[in-house]
């Protein structure tokens, strides 16, 4: 991704601002960040990220509220306290049950992304596959336009038209 200010260098600093519930993102290079007076701290390795994030959080109550703290997965018995200790979930169902609590961590770990875009198992019903594909193609089209890869963008647009 290119820097949104100079449009020349690779964007290595990603700023997310949430203002009155509206989220805006900015992607810039180190050089432009320095010019704008934005200090860039080196990023923490992802394998340290979750434990650091969790260590920074004093209690679940303060972040997720009492209701999240008492929540327990009916299938595996998992609680957020388990996650704090082990850094892993108890069963696939936990992603649904604890979605609200996990979402910020997921976004931090995946560079702000929180929606799958990639392989879909063949067993997933055709309609669902199509919807996921359309959503993925739209995102890819956006990225291609942003990076000025117009040839790729045209290919993606044609593919989208075929699907819709």
């Amino acid at each position: 991704m290119l820097c949104q200010i100079c449009n020349k260098r690779a964007a290595t600093i990603h700023l997310t601002e949430i203002n009155e519930g509206m989220r805006s993102e900015m992607h810039i290079c180190e050089h432009c960040a320095a010019e704008q007076g934005i200090a860039a701290k080196s990023q923490i390795a992802i394998n340290e990220l979750l434990s650091n994030l969790l260590a920074m959080q004093p209690t679940e109550d303060e972040i997720f509220g009492d209701s999240e703290h008492d929540l327990q997965c009916p299938r595996c018995g998992f609680t957020l306290e388990n996650f704090r200790k082990e850094g892993v979930l108890g069963c696939p169902n936990d992603y649904e049950i604890f979605e609200r609590a996990l979402l910020p961590l997921i976004e931090r770990a995946h560079n702000g992304k929180a929606v799958h875009r990639g392989k879909i198992p063949a067993k997933v019903p055709q309609d669902t596959r199509k919807q996921i594909k359309i959503s993925n193609l739209r995102q890819q089209l956006e990225t291609a336009v942003q990076s000025e890869d117009y040839e790729r963008a045209a290919e993606l647009r044609d593919e989208l038209n075929r699907l819709q």
Binding site: G87, P92, Y95, A114, H116
Partner: peptide, 15 residues
């Protein structure tokens, strides 16, 4: 899951 993709024990491998 259609939202999170392949579900993994640690959220860092998700998708």
């Amino acid at each position: 899951s259609t939202r999170f993709g392949y579900l993994t024990a640690c959220p860092t491998n998700l998708g």
